[in-house]
Design a protein around this nucleic acid. Sequence first.
DNA 1: AGCCAATCTTGACAACGATCAGATCAGCCC
DNA 2: GGGCTGATCTGATCGTTGTCAAGATTGGCT
Lengths: 210, 210
Amino acid sequence: MEQAQLTEARPYHHGDLRRALVDAGRRLLEVEGGAGISLRAVAREAGVSPAAPYHHFRDKSELLDALAIEGWDQLAVQMRAALAEAAPGRGRLVTLGVAYVQFAKMNPAIYRVMFDCSQSHESMPEKLRDEGAYRLVCDTLVESGIDPMDEVSLELAAVAIWCAAHGVAEMVGFKEFAPLQAHLGGEEAFLRAIFSQLDLFRPGSAVAAG
Amino acid sequence: MEQAQLTEARPYHHGDLRRALVDAGRRLLEVEGGAGISLRAVAREAGVSPAAPYHHFRDKSELLDALAIEGWDQLAVQMRAALAEAAPGRGRLVTLGVAYVQFAKMNPAIYRVMFDCSQSHESMPEKLRDEGAYRLVCDTLVESGIDPMDEVSLELAAVAIWCAAHGVAEMVGFKEFAPLQAHLGGEEAFLRAIFSQLDLFRPGSAVAAG
DNA sequence: AGCCAATCTTGACAACGATCAGATCAGCCC
DNA sequence: GGGCTGATCTGATCGTTGTCAAGATTGGCT
């Protein structure tokens, strides 16, 4: 009785519609892609009327925000897992970057919603800053030798890392990169190669010196 | 008579509606932002009925494609100009990156359309590859010492550069970076600093060694 | 002059986001 | 237990969008 029954003809009150809507949204994003998501479709998927979601979210963008927050959480979990398996020492930053990009590649529609959310709010969610991917990057940078007290250098480095990861994340899905990826021996090798190339911007890099 | 008159009550036939629609679209993207663009709005702006555009574009995405192509052209112009003013030697790659990002920051809505276009077509327009930004990057890489015959290295480097530039382009608008940017002495210094930091991914970089 | 085909308009349709009044139900107080 | 309150869900509706079919208009070729 204190449990909502999702079995058979649903009772008038859903029990936890908010949760169900977010799950339905994630399902739609995974299956239909970013274009196929609409408030009505989410409500349909959850088996309620088109107006029901408005009792749990002020508007569509607020539902998307909820989806984005779940996405950032899931991303942080995967990045933490990747870091746990990685050998200590240099290259852990690349491991983080690869995990970031792989998440985006596996969940492109969700990733887009996540990024659009950050962009529309003009700031990252505090959770992302405090316990999410951003924090992981900062910690790893400190491990690598950046002075944690030098906030300017630390933030600059973290921002740069995040920019690069985002760029790779959105472009790595391009089908025309498939041959190059195959030639380099698979996705992870491809990603690591790309990240390694980014020092090209630095005057006097390996290539410029060659 | 052989000229279309845009003055007063327009004649039944516009003269060059396709051109007018693209211009109207660009105007709307600049003024209203990416959200405020719709086929109907573009038609309204051009002073024709909502169905008129369908005689020049198969659907909305084809209009957006046209806008994207113009955007890529304009971007290439600006990048070429930046390169022409830049001192020879190292750092020309960064100049290109900065020009790319500045274009995106000045025309965020148009840039988004440009990138979505490339993404939906799952390949870059040939123009972009042959005479556009991509070509400029490749040429500059060859200048920097990459063997033009080693197509794998060249493409890998170009892709990495483009990924980084895209990532910075989409993130540099975040308002929360403003203090950091001010602290570093303006936009260009900020961008150059970010690009310089990207070698952090390389094991044994300056910081990792410090 | 006369016709053709390209161009533009009108009117319509389904789907969307959003809002509102009203139906329905759970939990609580008496 | 009876009844009230407030949260939840429905149905109807509005304005907007992308798209299409059918008709009006006209520039250009023969």
